[in-house]
Amino acid sequence: MTQHLIIQGEEVETPDLKALAKMTGAASIEQVAPQAFRLCCARRVEEVGPFCDAARLDWGYVPAGQRLAGFGLLAVDMDSTLIAIECIDELADIAGVKDEVAALTAAAMDGALDFAQSLRRRVALLAGLPATALEQVYGERLTLNPGAERLLREVKRAGLKTMLVSGGFTFFTERLKDRLGFDYAAANTLEIADGRLTGRVLGELVDAERKAAELRRIRDTLALSRAQVIAVGDGANDLKMLREAGVSIAYRAKPVVRQEATYVINYVGLDGILHLFE
């Protein structure tokens, strides 16, 4: 199968491109975006990864003819993937317990701590926090990761359905769903009583298993095959969801996720995903 090598970064130097083309025996170099290039008919060689890491370049071998329109669903994680923050850590900051909560979040994302156990412990630490803190985080602290809006716009233009699936909270996913036009969303619901968080989550937790199950449910509803799904995530609790997709993308992700994903994006924005498809 003919493969091309996609190279992209904040700054892609011409000498680096020439070196990679020589290294891989590429037939030609095509510019696909201001800082994204296709090395056509490139051989797979082990030296590409270390070279690109040293030059702070994202890279990926893509099958010739891999078109975005050939897929039917894009599933995206929320915290630290679609958006630049972990919402629960920001809520914890307002509650004065950020260090403890952030440590639990990091352990869960690295895969060192069971996600469901971690989430319950973290949410419990928020007990008594005024519910107005949710709006404060959304309005004052939540920012989209670079390229998020362009990614969603172009994916929808290509005819794909879009899904936001998160171990975070519905307060944020529902607002982002409306704002960005996601077709589907799934997340956890915080219990609120008398205007304050109770420290509990309502219903079944959206953990790693549930994320994967939600993706399968929507995939089946749309009568899609696994090969027609693209999934994007960053933490260990995304791994089972990513395995349900034909193309998985680790976006600025933990090492355990980078090891398994089809493609890894560390340096460019989310719209860099578009350059992996013709």
Rank of each mutant, 00 (worst) to 15 (best):
4 H>M: 00
4 H>A: 10
9 G>E: 00
9 G>F: 03
10 E>V: 09
13 E>G: 00
13 E>M: 02
16 D>H: 06
21 A>R: 06
22 K>S: 14
22 K>I: 13
23 M>S: 05
29 I>R: 05
34 P>T: 02
35 Q>V: 07
38 R>E: 11
38 R>N: 11
44 R>D: 13
51 F>C: 03
52 C>F: 05
63 P>W: 09
63 P>R: 13
65 G>Y: 14
66 Q>I: 08
67 R>W: 09
69 A>G: 15
72 G>S: 04
72 G>F: 09
78 M>C: 04
82 L>G: 00
82 L>W: 07
84 A>R: 13
92 A>K: 04
93 D>M: 10
93 D>R: 15
95 A>N: 13
96 G>P: 04
100 E>P: 06
101 V>R: 11
108 A>M: 02
121 R>A: 15
121 R>Y: 00
126 L>W: 01
128 G>I: 08
130 P>Q: 12
131 A>I: 00
137 V>L: 07
142 L>S: 06
143 T>R: 14
145 N>M: 07
147 G>M: 07
154 E>S: 13
157 R>W: 01
157 R>Q: 15
159 G>M: 09
164 L>H: 06
180 L>K: 09
180 L>Q: 11
186 A>M: 14
194 D>A: 14
194 D>G: 14
195 G>H: 09
197 L>P: 11
198 T>I: 07
211 K>D: 07
213 A>L: 13
222 L>K: 02
226 R>W: 08
227 A>T: 11
228 Q>K: 14
229 V>P: 02
233 G>F: 01
234 D>I: 00
236 A>C: 05
246 G>C: 02
249 I>Q: 06
258 R>D: 10
260 E>G: 12
261 A>V: 08
263 Y>Q: 08
267 Y>T: 14
273 I>C: 08
276 L>F: 13
